[in-house]
Write a protein that binds this DNA or RNA. Sequence first.
RNA 1: GGGUCGGUGCCCGAGUGGUUAAAGGGGAUGGGCUGUAAACCCAUUGGCGUAAGCCUACGUUGGUUCAAAUCCAACCCGGCCCA
Length: 402
Amino acid sequence: MAEKIAEQIRLLKRGTIEIFKEDELSEKLTEAAKTPRQLRIKLGLDPTSPDIHLGHTVVLRKMRQFQDLGHKAVLIIGDYTARIGDPSGQNTTRPTLTDEQIRQNAKTYFTQAGKVLDTSDDRLEVRYNSEWLEKMSLMELIQLAAKKTVAQMLQRDSFKKRLAAEDDVYTHEFLYPLMQGYDSVVIESDVELGGTDQTFNNLVGRDIQRAYGQTSQIVITMPILVGLDGKEKMSKSKGNYIGVTDEPNDMFGKVMSISDDMMENYFTLLTDLPAEKIAKLANPDKTHPKKAKVLLAKKIVTQFYNEATAQLAAAQFDKVFAQGQLPDDIPVVKISSEPIMASKLLVLCDLTSSSSEAKRMVKQSAVSINANKISDPNAEITPKDGMVIQVGKRRFARLKIK
RNA sequence: GGGUCGGUGCCCGAGUGGUUAAAGGGGAUGGGCUGUAAACCCAUUGGCGUAAGCCUACGUUGGUUCAAAUCCAACCCGGCCCA
Protein backbone atom coordinates (compact mmCIF):
# COMPACT_ATOMS: atom_id res chain seq x y z
CA MET A 1 0.00 0.00 0.00
CA ALA A 2 2.58 2.56 1.12
CA GLU A 3 4.69 1.48 -1.79
CA LYS A 4 1.86 1.98 -4.18
CA ILE A 5 1.33 5.49 -2.90
CA ALA A 6 5.03 6.25 -3.16
CA GLU A 7 4.90 5.06 -6.75
CA GLN A 8 1.93 7.34 -7.46
CA ILE A 9 3.73 10.30 -5.94
CA ARG A 10 6.74 9.61 -8.08
CA LEU A 11 4.58 9.64 -11.18
CA LEU A 12 2.69 12.75 -10.15
CA LYS A 13 5.87 14.61 -9.34
CA ARG A 14 7.26 14.26 -12.83
CA GLY A 15 7.61 17.61 -14.51
CA THR A 16 6.20 19.59 -11.60
CA ILE A 17 7.88 22.64 -10.17
CA GLU A 18 6.56 22.44 -6.66
CA ILE A 19 3.98 20.64 -4.53
CA PHE A 20 2.44 22.40 -1.54
CA LYS A 21 2.75 20.11 0.27
CA GLU A 22 4.00 16.74 -0.68
CA ASP A 23 3.28 15.01 2.61
CA GLU A 24 -0.31 16.28 2.52
CA LEU A 25 -0.65 14.86 -0.97
CA SER A 26 0.58 11.54 0.26
CA GLU A 27 -1.97 11.61 3.09
CA LYS A 28 -4.78 12.46 0.72
CA LEU A 29 -3.83 9.71 -1.68
CA THR A 30 -3.64 7.20 1.13
CA GLU A 31 -6.96 8.29 2.56
CA ALA A 32 -8.57 8.22 -0.88
CA ALA A 33 -7.32 4.70 -1.49
CA LYS A 34 -8.66 3.52 1.87
CA THR A 35 -12.10 5.08 1.89
CA PRO A 36 -12.22 4.73 -1.13
CA ARG A 37 -13.11 8.01 -2.71
CA GLN A 38 -12.10 10.10 -5.67
CA LEU A 39 -9.99 13.14 -5.03
CA ARG A 40 -11.36 16.27 -6.63
CA ILE A 41 -8.70 17.85 -8.79
CA LYS A 42 -9.39 21.44 -9.68
CA LEU A 43 -8.21 23.30 -12.72
CA GLY A 44 -9.35 26.80 -13.55
CA LEU A 45 -9.71 27.73 -17.20
CA ASP A 46 -9.87 31.17 -18.66
CA PRO A 47 -12.37 31.23 -21.52
CA THR A 48 -11.23 34.53 -22.97
CA SER A 49 -9.48 32.77 -25.83
CA PRO A 50 -11.08 29.69 -27.30
CA ASP A 51 -8.05 27.84 -28.52
CA ILE A 52 -5.81 25.77 -26.38
CA HIS A 53 -2.21 25.13 -27.19
CA LEU A 54 0.57 22.90 -25.95
CA GLY A 55 1.23 25.29 -23.08
CA HIS A 56 -2.17 24.42 -21.65
CA THR A 57 -1.63 20.75 -22.21
CA VAL A 58 1.25 20.65 -19.75
CA VAL A 59 -1.23 21.10 -16.93
CA LEU A 60 -3.94 19.08 -18.66
CA ARG A 61 -1.59 16.14 -18.99
CA LYS A 62 -0.93 16.28 -15.27
CA MET A 63 -4.67 16.29 -14.76
CA ARG A 64 -4.95 13.24 -16.96
CA GLN A 65 -2.51 11.40 -14.72
CA PHE A 66 -4.77 12.03 -11.77
CA GLN A 67 -7.73 10.80 -13.77
CA ASP A 68 -5.90 7.66 -14.73
CA LEU A 69 -5.32 7.03 -11.04
CA GLY A 70 -9.08 7.15 -10.58
CA HIS A 71 -9.60 10.71 -9.48
CA LYS A 72 -12.01 13.32 -10.71
CA ALA A 73 -11.07 16.33 -12.78
CA VAL A 74 -13.10 19.39 -11.94
CA LEU A 75 -12.75 22.02 -14.62
CA ILE A 76 -13.85 25.46 -13.60
CA ILE A 77 -14.72 27.66 -16.50
CA GLY A 78 -14.08 31.18 -15.29
CA ASP A 79 -16.96 32.68 -17.20
CA TYR A 80 -17.78 35.15 -14.45
CA THR A 81 -14.22 36.33 -14.03
CA ALA A 82 -13.76 36.53 -17.80
CA ARG A 83 -16.47 39.10 -18.04
CA ILE A 84 -14.49 41.50 -15.94
CA GLY A 85 -11.18 41.40 -17.74
CA ASP A 86 -7.68 40.17 -17.47
CA PRO A 87 -6.08 39.90 -14.05
CA SER A 88 -2.51 39.68 -15.23
CA GLY A 89 -2.50 43.24 -16.49
CA GLN A 90 -0.58 42.15 -19.55
CA ASN A 91 -3.08 43.64 -21.82
CA THR A 92 -5.32 46.39 -20.58
CA THR A 93 -7.08 46.82 -23.86
CA ARG A 94 -8.39 43.29 -23.85
CA PRO A 95 -12.03 43.49 -24.83
CA THR A 96 -14.59 42.32 -22.36
CA LEU A 97 -16.46 39.42 -23.81
CA THR A 98 -20.16 38.91 -24.07
CA ASP A 99 -21.85 35.98 -22.37
CA GLU A 100 -22.45 34.40 -25.73
CA GLN A 101 -18.77 34.58 -26.71
CA ILE A 102 -17.69 33.20 -23.39
CA ARG A 103 -20.08 30.29 -23.62
CA GLN A 104 -18.93 29.61 -27.14
CA ASN A 105 -15.29 29.76 -26.11
CA ALA A 106 -15.89 27.49 -23.17
CA LYS A 107 -17.47 24.98 -25.48
CA THR A 108 -14.58 24.83 -27.93
CA TYR A 109 -12.19 24.89 -25.04
CA PHE A 110 -13.88 21.86 -23.60
CA THR A 111 -13.80 19.98 -26.88
CA GLN A 112 -10.12 20.70 -27.24
CA ALA A 113 -9.28 19.79 -23.65
CA GLY A 114 -10.98 16.49 -24.39
CA LYS A 115 -8.05 15.63 -26.62
CA VAL A 116 -6.01 15.26 -23.48
CA LEU A 117 -8.49 14.51 -20.73
CA ASP A 118 -10.69 11.53 -20.02
CA THR A 119 -14.15 12.93 -20.59
CA SER A 120 -16.22 10.12 -19.12
CA ASP A 121 -18.79 11.25 -16.56
CA ASP A 122 -17.19 9.73 -13.51
CA ARG A 123 -13.81 11.27 -14.32
CA LEU A 124 -14.77 14.77 -15.32
CA GLU A 125 -16.95 17.50 -13.94
CA VAL A 126 -17.30 20.88 -15.59
CA ARG A 127 -18.53 23.89 -13.66
CA TYR A 128 -19.01 27.54 -14.52
CA ASN A 129 -18.08 29.85 -11.70
CA SER A 130 -20.90 32.24 -12.51
CA GLU A 131 -23.04 29.55 -10.93
CA TRP A 132 -22.03 30.77 -7.48
CA LEU A 133 -20.25 34.07 -8.04
CA GLU A 134 -23.25 35.64 -9.72
CA LYS A 135 -25.36 35.01 -6.68
CA MET A 136 -22.84 36.37 -4.26
CA SER A 137 -24.01 39.40 -2.33
CA LEU A 138 -21.82 42.38 -1.60
CA MET A 139 -21.86 41.39 2.05
CA GLU A 140 -20.57 37.96 1.20
CA LEU A 141 -17.88 39.46 -0.96
CA ILE A 142 -16.82 41.75 1.85
CA GLN A 143 -16.64 38.82 4.19
CA LEU A 144 -14.52 36.97 1.67
CA ALA A 145 -12.25 39.97 1.21
CA ALA A 146 -11.85 40.19 4.96
CA LYS A 147 -10.02 36.87 4.94
CA LYS A 148 -6.84 38.33 3.51
CA THR A 149 -4.85 41.44 4.31
CA VAL A 150 -3.58 43.97 1.80
CA ALA A 151 -0.02 43.11 2.71
CA GLN A 152 -0.74 39.47 1.91
CA MET A 153 -2.16 40.45 -1.45
CA LEU A 154 0.89 42.55 -2.21
CA GLN A 155 3.04 39.46 -1.81
CA ARG A 156 1.96 38.42 -5.22
CA ASP A 157 4.89 38.71 -7.52
CA SER A 158 3.12 40.37 -10.39
CA PHE A 159 1.63 43.02 -8.10
CA LYS A 160 5.00 43.67 -6.55
CA LYS A 161 6.75 43.98 -9.87
CA ARG A 162 4.15 46.16 -11.39
CA LEU A 163 4.08 48.48 -8.43
CA ALA A 164 7.85 48.71 -8.52
CA ALA A 165 7.72 49.48 -12.23
CA GLU A 166 4.99 52.04 -11.59
CA ASP A 167 2.59 50.12 -13.79
CA ASP A 168 -1.12 50.08 -13.12
CA VAL A 169 -2.55 47.78 -10.54
CA TYR A 170 -6.31 47.99 -10.38
CA THR A 171 -8.22 47.46 -7.20
CA HIS A 172 -10.44 44.75 -8.64
CA GLU A 173 -7.40 42.66 -9.42
CA PHE A 174 -7.19 41.88 -5.73
CA LEU A 175 -10.52 40.14 -6.10
CA TYR A 176 -9.34 37.53 -8.56
CA PRO A 177 -7.28 35.48 -6.14
CA LEU A 178 -10.11 35.70 -3.64
CA MET A 179 -12.72 34.56 -6.11
CA GLN A 180 -10.54 31.73 -7.32
CA GLY A 181 -10.00 30.69 -3.74
CA TYR A 182 -13.71 30.79 -3.20
CA ASP A 183 -14.15 28.50 -6.20
CA SER A 184 -12.06 25.96 -4.32
CA VAL A 185 -14.36 26.22 -1.33
CA VAL A 186 -17.48 25.73 -3.42
CA ILE A 187 -16.26 22.72 -5.31
CA GLU A 188 -14.38 21.35 -2.29
CA SER A 189 -11.20 20.71 -4.17
CA ASP A 190 -8.53 18.39 -2.83
CA VAL A 191 -5.84 19.39 -5.26
CA GLU A 192 -5.49 22.38 -7.52
CA LEU A 193 -3.28 22.33 -10.58
CA GLY A 194 -1.86 25.33 -12.35
CA GLY A 195 1.12 26.94 -13.98
CA THR A 196 3.67 28.70 -11.84
CA ASP A 197 2.02 31.97 -12.79
CA GLN A 198 -0.96 30.81 -10.78
CA THR A 199 0.98 29.89 -7.66
CA PHE A 200 -0.16 32.85 -5.64
CA ASN A 201 -3.81 32.53 -6.60
CA ASN A 202 -3.86 28.85 -5.90
CA LEU A 203 -2.18 29.21 -2.55
CA VAL A 204 -4.76 31.79 -1.57
CA GLY A 205 -7.21 28.98 -2.19
CA ARG A 206 -5.56 27.03 0.62
CA ASP A 207 -6.04 29.88 3.06
CA ILE A 208 -9.56 30.61 1.99
CA GLN A 209 -10.59 26.98 2.33
CA ARG A 210 -9.15 26.89 5.84
CA ALA A 211 -10.97 30.12 6.67
CA TYR A 212 -14.20 28.45 5.57
CA GLY A 213 -13.53 25.41 7.69
CA GLN A 214 -12.28 23.08 4.98
CA THR A 215 -9.09 21.12 4.65
CA SER A 216 -6.67 23.03 2.46
CA GLN A 217 -6.20 21.83 -1.07
CA ILE A 218 -2.82 20.70 -2.25
CA VAL A 219 -1.36 22.99 -4.86
CA ILE A 220 0.75 21.58 -7.64
CA THR A 221 2.51 23.99 -9.93
CA MET A 222 3.69 23.13 -13.41
CA PRO A 223 6.30 24.94 -15.46
CA ILE A 224 5.23 27.44 -18.02
CA LEU A 225 5.98 26.10 -21.46
CA VAL A 226 8.27 28.33 -23.46
CA GLY A 227 6.89 29.31 -26.84
CA LEU A 228 8.39 28.75 -30.27
CA ASP A 229 10.50 31.88 -29.97
CA GLY A 230 12.35 30.25 -27.10
CA LYS A 231 11.92 33.30 -24.93
CA GLU A 232 8.43 34.07 -23.84
CA LYS A 233 5.77 31.80 -22.53
CA MET A 234 3.65 30.10 -25.13
CA SER A 235 0.58 32.17 -25.76
CA LYS A 236 -1.84 32.82 -28.49
CA SER A 237 -1.48 36.56 -28.43
CA LYS A 238 2.27 36.31 -28.93
CA GLY A 239 1.77 33.96 -31.85
CA ASN A 240 4.46 31.60 -30.60
CA TYR A 241 2.20 28.65 -30.03
CA ILE A 242 1.32 25.21 -31.30
CA GLY A 243 -2.42 24.76 -31.14
CA VAL A 244 -3.94 21.38 -30.40
CA THR A 245 -6.07 21.80 -33.50
CA ASP A 246 -3.19 22.80 -35.75
CA GLU A 247 -2.96 20.78 -38.93
CA PRO A 248 -0.55 17.84 -38.61
CA ASN A 249 1.96 19.27 -41.08
CA ASP A 250 1.84 22.59 -39.36
CA MET A 251 2.23 21.07 -35.97
CA PHE A 252 5.17 19.03 -37.14
CA GLY A 253 6.86 22.00 -38.75
CA LYS A 254 6.42 24.16 -35.70
CA VAL A 255 8.05 21.58 -33.47
CA MET A 256 10.94 21.36 -35.92
CA SER A 257 11.47 25.08 -35.65
CA ILE A 258 12.18 25.12 -31.93
CA SER A 259 15.77 25.55 -30.90
CA ASP A 260 17.80 22.55 -29.80
CA ASP A 261 18.11 23.55 -26.19
CA MET A 262 14.33 23.61 -25.78
CA MET A 263 13.98 19.99 -26.78
CA GLU A 264 14.65 18.45 -23.41
CA ASN A 265 12.01 20.64 -21.86
CA TYR A 266 9.44 19.78 -24.50
CA PHE A 267 10.19 16.08 -24.21
CA THR A 268 9.68 16.20 -20.47
CA LEU A 269 6.53 18.25 -20.44
CA LEU A 270 4.82 17.02 -23.57
CA THR A 271 5.65 13.34 -23.83
CA ASP A 272 5.67 10.35 -21.49
CA LEU A 273 9.17 9.23 -22.34
CA PRO A 274 11.23 8.21 -19.32
CA ALA A 275 13.84 10.63 -18.07
CA GLU A 276 16.83 8.43 -19.01
CA LYS A 277 15.65 8.20 -22.58
CA ILE A 278 15.13 11.94 -22.76
CA ALA A 279 18.61 12.58 -21.43
CA LYS A 280 19.99 10.47 -24.24
CA LEU A 281 17.92 12.24 -26.87
CA ALA A 282 18.88 15.66 -25.63
CA ASN A 283 22.57 14.92 -25.66
CA PRO A 284 23.98 15.90 -29.05
CA ASP A 285 26.87 13.45 -28.63
CA LYS A 286 24.44 10.56 -28.39
CA THR A 287 21.69 11.64 -30.75
CA HIS A 288 21.79 14.04 -33.66
CA PRO A 289 19.58 16.96 -32.63
CA LYS A 290 17.65 16.89 -35.87
CA LYS A 291 16.85 13.23 -35.40
CA ALA A 292 15.74 13.79 -31.84
CA LYS A 293 13.56 16.66 -32.92
CA VAL A 294 11.89 14.59 -35.60
CA LEU A 295 11.04 12.05 -32.93
CA LEU A 296 9.65 14.76 -30.70
CA ALA A 297 7.54 16.16 -33.50
CA LYS A 298 6.20 12.71 -34.33
CA LYS A 299 5.34 12.03 -30.69
CA ILE A 300 3.43 15.25 -30.43
CA VAL A 301 1.52 14.86 -33.68
CA THR A 302 0.67 11.29 -32.69
CA GLN A 303 -0.94 12.50 -29.48
CA PHE A 304 -3.39 14.72 -31.27
CA TYR A 305 -3.87 12.64 -34.39
CA ASN A 306 -2.32 9.21 -34.79
CA GLU A 307 0.91 7.56 -35.68
CA ALA A 308 0.18 7.16 -39.37
CA THR A 309 -0.61 10.85 -39.68
CA ALA A 310 2.58 11.70 -37.85
CA GLN A 311 4.58 9.56 -40.29
CA LEU A 312 2.97 11.35 -43.20
CA ALA A 313 3.74 14.72 -41.68
CA ALA A 314 7.36 13.71 -41.23
CA ALA A 315 7.59 12.56 -44.84
CA GLN A 316 5.96 15.73 -46.03
CA PHE A 317 8.33 17.84 -44.01
CA ASP A 318 11.32 16.07 -45.44
CA LYS A 319 9.98 16.49 -48.93
CA VAL A 320 9.27 20.19 -48.70
CA PHE A 321 12.09 21.46 -46.55
CA ALA A 322 14.93 19.00 -46.91
CA GLN A 323 14.42 18.35 -50.62
CA GLY A 324 12.77 21.61 -51.54
CA GLN A 325 9.91 19.96 -53.35
CA LEU A 326 6.31 21.04 -53.39
CA PRO A 327 3.98 19.93 -50.63
CA ASP A 328 1.04 17.69 -51.52
CA ASP A 329 -1.72 19.92 -50.33
CA ILE A 330 -1.36 23.31 -51.95
CA PRO A 331 -4.36 25.60 -51.63
CA VAL A 332 -6.05 26.01 -54.99
CA VAL A 333 -7.02 29.48 -56.13
CA LYS A 334 -9.56 29.94 -58.88
CA ILE A 335 -8.69 32.70 -61.26
CA SER A 336 -9.51 33.91 -64.73
CA SER A 337 -6.93 33.50 -67.47
CA GLU A 338 -6.57 37.29 -67.96
CA PRO A 339 -2.95 38.40 -67.63
CA ILE A 340 -2.40 39.98 -64.25
CA MET A 341 0.35 41.97 -62.60
CA ALA A 342 2.52 39.81 -60.36
CA SER A 343 1.98 41.91 -57.24
CA LYS A 344 -1.77 41.73 -57.68
CA LEU A 345 -1.68 38.02 -58.27
CA LEU A 346 -0.02 37.49 -54.89
CA VAL A 347 -2.72 39.43 -53.11
CA LEU A 348 -5.40 37.60 -55.00
CA CYS A 349 -3.92 34.26 -53.94
CA ASP A 350 -3.80 35.49 -50.37
CA LEU A 351 -0.05 35.00 -50.27
CA THR A 352 0.58 38.56 -49.12
CA SER A 353 -1.71 40.93 -47.30
CA SER A 354 -1.17 43.97 -49.49
CA SER A 355 0.24 44.69 -52.88
CA SER A 356 2.93 46.82 -51.26
CA GLU A 357 4.06 43.79 -49.34
CA ALA A 358 3.87 41.72 -52.50
CA LYS A 359 6.19 44.14 -54.26
CA ARG A 360 8.64 43.98 -51.42
CA MET A 361 8.60 40.20 -51.47
CA VAL A 362 9.30 40.08 -55.17
CA LYS A 363 12.15 42.55 -54.82
CA GLN A 364 13.63 40.41 -52.09
CA SER A 365 13.51 37.45 -54.47
CA ALA A 366 11.13 35.53 -52.28
CA VAL A 367 8.66 34.82 -55.03
CA SER A 368 8.76 32.09 -57.60
CA ILE A 369 6.34 30.91 -60.22
CA ASN A 370 6.66 27.27 -61.22
CA ALA A 371 9.98 27.23 -59.35
CA ASN A 372 11.38 30.18 -61.30
CA LYS A 373 12.23 33.23 -59.23
CA ILE A 374 10.73 36.43 -60.51
CA SER A 375 12.21 39.83 -59.90
CA ASP A 376 9.80 42.32 -61.42
CA PRO A 377 6.69 42.97 -59.32
CA ASN A 378 5.01 44.60 -62.28
CA ALA A 379 5.54 41.73 -64.64
CA GLU A 380 2.39 40.58 -66.35
CA ILE A 381 1.63 36.99 -65.53
CA THR A 382 -0.69 34.92 -67.63
CA PRO A 383 -2.35 32.43 -65.30
CA LYS A 384 -2.26 28.81 -66.42
CA ASP A 385 -3.95 25.79 -64.96
CA GLY A 386 -1.75 24.18 -62.33
CA MET A 387 0.66 27.09 -62.10
CA VAL A 388 2.28 27.15 -58.66
CA ILE A 389 3.11 30.42 -56.91
CA GLN A 390 5.45 30.32 -53.94
CA VAL A 391 6.32 33.05 -51.48
CA GLY A 392 9.14 32.37 -49.05
CA LYS A 393 9.61 28.82 -47.93
CA ARG A 394 6.16 27.93 -46.90
CA ARG A 395 3.50 29.92 -48.65
CA PHE A 396 2.09 28.24 -51.73
CA ALA A 397 -0.86 28.55 -54.07
CA ARG A 398 -1.87 26.58 -57.13
CA LEU A 399 -3.89 28.30 -59.82
CA LYS A 400 -6.98 26.93 -61.42
CA ILE A 401 -8.54 28.69 -64.35
CA LYS A 402 -12.24 29.21 -63.90
C1' G B 1 -8.97 68.17 -4.67
C1' G B 2 -3.75 70.57 -5.57
C1' G B 3 1.07 70.11 -7.93
C1' U B 4 3.89 67.81 -11.60
C1' C B 5 5.26 64.59 -15.63
C1' G B 6 3.49 62.06 -19.62
C1' G B 7 0.12 59.69 -23.97
C1' U B 8 4.46 58.69 -30.99
C1' G B 9 4.34 53.16 -35.80
C1' C B 10 3.40 45.63 -33.70
C1' C B 11 6.28 46.92 -28.86
C1' C B 12 9.95 50.13 -26.44
C1' G B 13 11.66 54.83 -27.52
C1' A B 14 14.04 59.59 -29.99
C1' G B 15 12.13 63.76 -32.05
C1' U B 16 9.98 70.16 -29.67
C1' G B 17 7.70 74.42 -36.52
C1' G B 18 9.63 72.68 -42.74
C1' U B 19 15.01 68.16 -45.41
C1' U B 20 9.60 63.28 -40.95
C1' A B 21 6.26 57.56 -43.35
C1' A B 22 8.96 59.90 -38.46
C1' A B 23 16.24 58.30 -35.49
C1' G B 24 17.63 53.97 -32.58
C1' G B 25 16.44 49.26 -30.50
C1' G B 26 13.30 44.90 -30.08
C1' G B 27 10.16 41.77 -32.68
C1' A B 28 8.59 40.00 -37.32
C1' U B 29 9.34 38.81 -42.45
C1' G B 30 12.62 37.79 -46.86
C1' G B 31 17.58 36.37 -48.65
C1' G B 32 22.55 33.94 -47.50
C1' C B 33 24.72 29.93 -44.42
C1' U B 34 22.17 25.42 -42.27
C1' G B 35 19.26 20.67 -39.71
C1' U B 36 12.56 25.53 -41.30
C1' A B 37 18.07 24.69 -34.63
C1' A B 38 21.33 28.31 -32.57
C1' A B 39 24.92 31.96 -33.94
C1' C B 40 26.25 35.18 -37.80
C1' C B 41 25.79 38.47 -42.41
C1' C B 42 22.50 41.38 -45.75
C1' A B 43 17.73 43.42 -46.68
C1' U B 44 12.59 44.75 -45.71
C1' U B 45 9.08 46.42 -42.05
C1' G B 46 1.55 52.02 -43.36
C1' G B 47 -1.78 51.81 -47.76
C1' C B 48 -3.02 52.75 -53.03
C1' G B 49 -0.62 53.36 -57.81
C1' U B 50 3.01 50.34 -63.90
C1' A B 51 5.16 54.99 -62.61
C1' A B 52 5.39 60.12 -61.39
C1' G B 53 2.83 60.58 -57.32
C1' C B 54 -1.27 60.49 -53.92
C1' C B 55 -3.63 59.23 -49.25
C1' U B 56 -3.52 57.97 -44.02
C1' A B 57 -0.58 58.19 -39.25
C1' C B 58 2.32 60.89 -33.53
C1' G B 59 -4.48 60.53 -27.15
C1' U B 60 -9.38 63.52 -28.98
C1' U B 61 -11.42 67.99 -30.93
C1' G B 62 -10.68 72.75 -32.46
C1' G B 63 -7.17 76.88 -33.43
C1' U B 64 -2.45 79.74 -34.96
C1' U B 65 0.75 79.28 -39.42
C1' C B 66 2.44 79.28 -46.29
C1' A B 67 3.83 74.81 -43.21
C1' A B 68 2.39 71.29 -36.89
C1' A B 69 4.10 64.91 -33.94
C1' U B 70 6.33 69.64 -32.78
C1' C B 71 3.03 76.15 -30.88
C1' C B 72 -2.04 77.45 -28.39
C1' A B 73 -6.92 75.96 -26.13
C1' A B 74 -10.36 72.63 -24.29
C1' C B 75 -11.31 67.74 -23.32
C1' C B 76 -10.14 62.35 -22.40
C1' C B 77 -6.62 58.82 -20.19
C1' G B 78 -2.44 57.41 -17.04
C1' G B 79 2.12 57.80 -13.58
C1' C B 80 4.35 60.22 -9.44
C1' C B 81 4.18 63.64 -5.15
C1' C B 82 0.99 66.22 -1.62
C1' A B 83 -3.94 66.18 0.82
